[in-house]
Amino acid sequence: MKIFRNISTWINSKRLLTLLLLLPLFCQAHERPEMADTFRSSGKIYVVLLVICTIFAGIILFLVFLERKIKKLERNQHNHKQ
């Protein structure tokens, strides 16, 4: 009988109530899709950003130089015609 009384007091205790109330919160925390939440914490993601921007700048510079070369060819062709 003592055990039952213990259990009933435990059930009635505030601790369990708060636990029950918080249960949806815990569940939600587990259901939330895993994202890269610590992705930016070390700050090193900015290094990756820098690398991508460098490669992109390289490609754009290549295009600009290529365009210059073509422009020169076009000018030569134009002079040749005259």
């Binding site: 939330r32 899709p33 994202m35 890269a36 930016r40 993601i45 950003l49 991508i52 992109f56």
Partner: peptide, 17 residues
């Protein structure tokens, strides 16, 4: 590139980041 890597996105199952 900058916004695509750093701006907030919705958290979805399977797809993640």
């Amino acid at each position: 590139i900058i916004g695509g890597l750093l701006f907030p996105v919705p958290a979805l199952a399977l797809i993640h980041e």
